[in-house]
Write a protein that binds this DNA or RNA. Structure first.
Lengths: 131, 131
DNA sequence: CTTGACCTTCCCACCGTGGGAAGGTTTATC
DNA sequence: GATAAACCTTCCCACGGTGGGAAGGTCAAG
């Protein structure tokens, strides 16, 4: 499977596949005689995993850890668990932050009548001087 | 007030103030004879507004809209509300995805704990189940 | 065999942010 | 009043991700 097909199958653009390869996030793909990259199902699975992690805002570095966790079955379970739970904690923290933002904004929006009148607590809320 | 003081007072770094000016998000500050930027209370208010919006995860583009609405006394609050709720939906979506990922990772940590089998069933599930 | 769709590498752009250099200005200290 | 520290200015560079596109090679279908 060439890079275009792999991109389509995984949801990761060809550009990004090359980029991930260049940064070492994924192993260099094998090549045909002509130099075309060649991908198998296993690679597609990896790319899909990457896409999901990326969609969730993981950095390349974090994805690196996630992939290692994902791939390396010979690791001590304590290590695996520690890394995983670390990431879980981070995910939870991020999710909480987002929800806090959402909560604040929703609160402001609830008090905004949303008509043609200019008064809007969202605006005044943002403009308030307190830190 | 020079840029350093303005940065301190607003919580936006001097670097970013210059950047926001360069991109047109804020108006060019007036200058002293020596070329130093000079800020007044009104500018500080604007910068604080920006910082808070930024903290809530608004993009520069969204901030542009919000600022216009903030400054426009004749705006309709509905416009503001629309932008805010749009952003809320985005935040919620992201938060949910993070929690979903957290759930998956927790599951992974609990079940794929380093035995010697070459394939972890959770992994294949991960790659298959999406989209 | 030609043509179009693909592939390769390469450089450029963007955003938002920070680092830092080179040079000018203000302020505080002696 | 001189000097040094702290500030300002512009400029370029870097990062992580991502896309655009050019120049050139390759594959497959007509």
């Amino acid at each position: 499977m060439n890079i275009g097909k792999a991109a389509e199958a995984s949801g990761v653009s060809a550009k990004m596949i090359r980029y991930y390869e260049s940064t070492g996030l994924i192993a260099a793909a094998e090549r045909t005689q002509a130099g075309y990259r060649n991908y198998g199902q296993r690679d597609i699975d990896t790319l899909r995993f990457i896409r999901r992690a990326r969609d969730l805002g993981f950095s390349v570095e974090q994805m690196h850890d996630l992939l290692a966790l994902w791939r390396d079955q010979s690791r001590a379970s304590a290590d695996v668990k520690r890394i995983a739970l670390q990431h879980v904690a981070e995910l939870e923290r991020k999710a909480q932050q987002l929800q806090e933002m959402s909560r604040v904004l929703t609160h402001l929006a609830e008090n905004c009548h949303g008509d043609e009148r200019p008064d809007c607590p969202i605006i005044t809320g943002l403009a308030e001087n307190d830190r």
